[in-house]
Simulated assay, not measured.
Amino acid sequence: MKVQHLSQALQRIEASPTTAMTDRASELRAEGRDIISLSVGEPDFPTPPHVIEAAKAALDAGDTRYTPVVGTAALRKAAALHFERDLGIATDPSRVIVTAGGKQAIFEALAATVSAGDEVIVPSPWWVSYPQMVRFCGGTVAPLRTSARNNFRFSPSELEALITPRTNWLMLNSPGNPTGAVFPADMLRGIGDVLRRHPQVLVLSDDIYSPLIYTEAPHATLAVECPDLADRICTVSGVSKSHAMTGFRIGVATGPDWLVKAMGKLQSNSSGNPASISQAAAVAAFEGPQDFLADWREAFRRRRDLVVARVNAIPGLSTPVPDGAFYCLVDAAPLMNRFGGDDGKLALHLLDHGVATVAASAFGGKDGFRISFAADEAVLVEALDRIDKALA
């Protein structure tokens, strides 16, 4: 008899649905099935050559040892440059922590601060891991519902209605996953007005998709729009989406000194330092040429327009035009009777027809699925042809 001792914390969460669908697509491919995966948020462009060369140079130089737990001095300095140049956040390298991906930074910030009974406001639809992290820490998720009718944005009054004495975090993600929603500067300033009345609330600003905005307005972030609240804001970024470096597993975060130190304390007892070679590559990513991003952004814009037009031409499907990131959250409500009201069954139906997507319910939504358009246009056309046939 096998004995299993699972912690209460682990029993409160579920495996990530996005990685589960991606893994399932890989398994089917290994079995010989022709599967197009639109389930994972991963740029299909090659990692920039100067980043690859930096990784090779680090290997040749023998930089294969432990580094400081919170990151090398070179990368913390480069990350501080990134925060100021690209996000407008002036920060000192001492207030930067380097993690094994942005996901680890978010987890550490929550794990260092959330206790049983604490409440975390999470706008929905949300990135799948936000509520799981909160629940693992013993916190309670307070969903802040948004919809396509309002471009997946919320009003200051809607936010304030959810705040209680137990609220200790607000999660912000702009551009957002899975909706592509972008929070404009005036919305963030309105959020700031609410937060000033509730000084116990911290803010996690996930800006990992900040280079991928398709509107005329530049990226806006709370720490810039409300500088007087900077000591309550943890801003997370990285190189995965901006430089096609998902496998390097490097995230960076900046915030108040006490929080960065708390995150480092946790990291010192869990993963230790991020990979030394990945850190060297990330220095090159932040300090090297950034001009390629304009071409990538324009390619993503073309793909977005293609996917939106094709989805909206399929009877029973609709999607708004996302302002950022590389996702479309597709509404399939008129078709849900065919699937017993279960969008998980809809996603499996599409998988049976050769396209891996992720059910909207995985993101706190309903009656639809998320498409990642981080794929070649020919691949997207074929995938949408298959979706059209699957639902005909």
Score class of each variant (00 low, 15 high):
E84N: 14
A142S: 13
V69R: 02
L75P: 04
G88N: 12
R145D: 14
R196Y: 06
D86K: 14
A148G: 02
G62C: 02
A116Q: 12
P199Y: 03
V128I: 06
E84G: 10
A109Q: 05
T99C: 09
S174E: 08
A73V: 10
R135A: 07
R196H: 09
G71V: 01
F183C: 06
V194S: 09
S174K: 05
P175N: 11
P184K: 09
S174L: 11
N173P: 13
S115F: 06
A100C: 15
F183T: 11
A109V: 09
A181I: 00
V70P: 11
A61V: 04
L170I: 01
F154G: 04
S129F: 01
T113H: 08
P199M: 06
E158K: 10
T164M: 12
R166W: 02
F183M: 12
Y130N: 04
E160T: 06
H198K: 14
P131N: 10
K77L: 09
M187S: 14
V134H: 02
N173D: 13
D60F: 13
I97D: 00
L144I: 13
D60P: 02
R95C: 11
R145Q: 14
A100T: 15
S115E: 12
V70G: 14
P93Y: 12
E158P: 08
E160L: 04
P123R: 05
Q200V: 06
V128H: 02
P143H: 10
A161M: 06
L81R: 07
Q200I: 05
E108T: 00
T179E: 01
A61I: 08
I163G: 01
Y130G: 00
R145T: 12
R166Y: 06
N151D: 05
R135W: 02
A79E: 01
I97C: 08
